[in-house]
Amino acid sequence: MELLIQLALNGLALGALYALMAVGFALIFGTTKIFHFAHGATFVLAAYTYYAAVSEAGLPVAFALGLCAAVALGFGLACERFVYRPMLRSESASLTIFVASFGLFIAAENAVILVFGSSYHTLESRLSRALQLGPFAISPVGLCAIVASATILGALEFFLARTYTGAALRAMADNPELVRMIGLNRYYYAKVAFAVGSLMVVPAAVLSVYLSGLSPQSGAWITLVAIASTIVGGVGSLYGAALGGIVLGVAQNVGIWRLPASWGEGIAFGVLLLFLLFRPTGLIHVFERR
């Protein structure tokens, strides 16, 4: 039982990171209807920028964070401006846009491999050492992940609920035609969605360098998780995406309670498939129905 709780605790820290990725993805997908597969490429680029800045260039952490944010923001906005916008203008099919995004993802992942090699990197910090809480252990980095995730999601909630731009974004998600009719520029709000979504990658990328280490291939996994969480949570709901991320993180860890560790990924996606089959509308709608 103690082991189970410990695993759930590890899962919660991982799930908090997944939630950040998922909410960023869900925000972009919800408002622009663009299936931004390259969201995972933003993650890899940001994480490697941070890693290179801290460990290879020896820059101070604050500076590295800024650099990392600039890269994430730049990549997200460049995708929107140079790939998606021309395609939306020419009214491409949604799957065509998805394939373009997939191409971007493959290109970015391999560009990273060309520069850094495909081996595994990790950073050590004083914060990585586990703290003992009674019978359980959790690393401060894991706690950071949970706190950061909660703070950022709270801030996002405030932004969406209380500001004019946030309201416009919600309107885009709800009814894009109407947004056009009242004369709002949908490309401007798409840009905002990409900027916010891409910036949310930064904490996830930085913390995961400490928490689980980094390899170019981790981008594919993180994209899958972001998309899967969006679906498990319920498309169109940011809370749902966050909840989905936590569920997947916990499932991945708790699943290995009785099975060998290498089954973790398979289990997380088993959960996803079960949801797709039996609850395609996701968790949030399960709760709403009650």
Partner: peptide
């Protein structure tokens, strides 16, 4: 070799789709 190849495919795919 591998990364260069895949990088090329990725770029080709994106450009073709546009």
């Amino acid at each position: 070799l591998g990364p260069v190849q895949r990088l090329t495919y990725g770029v080709i795919m994106t450009l073709l789709m546009i």
